[in-house]
Design a binder for these strands. Structure first.
Length: 232
DNA sequence: GACCAGGCACATC
DNA sequence: GATGTGCATGGT
């Protein structure tokens, strides 16, 4: 069964339902654009609580800096980000991103972020270890440009509430937002943050959705609320 | 002790 | 081009 595409009105009402429940989220959890870039790589398939420990290690060593990380040996970097898991692959991926920043932009993120979104995205995607979600997270939350981030929470929440088909790919989910609601950085930033909030609190492990603001909103309005889908 | 978490690249068919 | 696999820690 093919689902009809949600309207502007519907998506905004959905957003407002989340906003009313959670309040403005003020995302991403990071003190600087560079920290957002590092966090975006470290959080790949990893709980944020573990990422926070790795970031704290880097901060404690004053290593949250492109030039410091550029000079750091692999073993040392891997050891510092160990709590985030996959530390060997992530140390390489982080280094690949740092290489782009330092070697092509003299360590200056403003330089990296200066091109139009499409060009910036291509640059980020050319880095081995930076996929669509990581690139888009950096573009939205570090560069402050309007692109919608599609992550596990986004898919899960949309799927669980019957708004997309199972297996809908990244580009299709992203296009759903881009073609429906305005290209606005602040809106995309908070919308995604709201989705993460509801995904984290209500659509993760719990077998039922009691108290979920989306359930309240969607009942009688959505293609069908689908309780009980946990995990991926 | 099993299961899961804000992916990604690579091998194989 | 679809599907499977390795990477790894820490919380529930």
């Amino acid at each position: 069964m093919k689902k009809s595409k949600p309207s502007y009105k519907f998506l905004m009402a959905l957003y407002n339902a989340l906003l009313g429940h959670f309040g403005v989220r003020n995302w991403w959890p990071g003190d600087s654009p560079f920290e957002v870039c590092v966090g975006a790589v470290l959080t790949q398939n990893t709980a944020w609580t573990n990422v926070a420990k790795a970031v704290a290690n880097l901060k404690a060593r004053s290593a949250l800096d492109p030039f410091v990380l550029y000079r750091m040996p692999h073993e040392e970097l891997a050891e510092m980000i160990r709590p985030a898991g996959y530390y060997n692959v992530k140390a390489v991926r982080l280094r690949n991103l740092i290489d782009l920043i330092v070697e092509n932009h003299e360590g200056d993120l403003k330089s990296l972020f200066s091109p139009p979104i499409h060009e910036l995205r291509q640059q980020l995607l050319s880095v081995k270890g930076v996929g669509k979600e990581t690139a888009d997270s950096i573009i939205l939350y570090a560069a402050g440009k309007p692109i919608f981030v599609v992550d596990a929470y986004t898919r899960r929440v949309l799927l669980r509430h019957g708004l997309v088909e199972d297996g809908t790919d990244y580009d299709a989910v992203q296009e759903l937002f881009h073609s429906t609601i305005p290209r606005d950085t602040a809106l995309y930033n908070d919308f995604h943050a709201q989705i993460v909030a509801v995904g984290h609190h209500f659509c993760r492990r719990k077998p039922v959705c009691g108290g979920c603001p989306l359930q309240v909103f969607l009942d009688g309005q959505s293609p069908g609320h689908v309780p009980g889908i946990t995990g991926k």
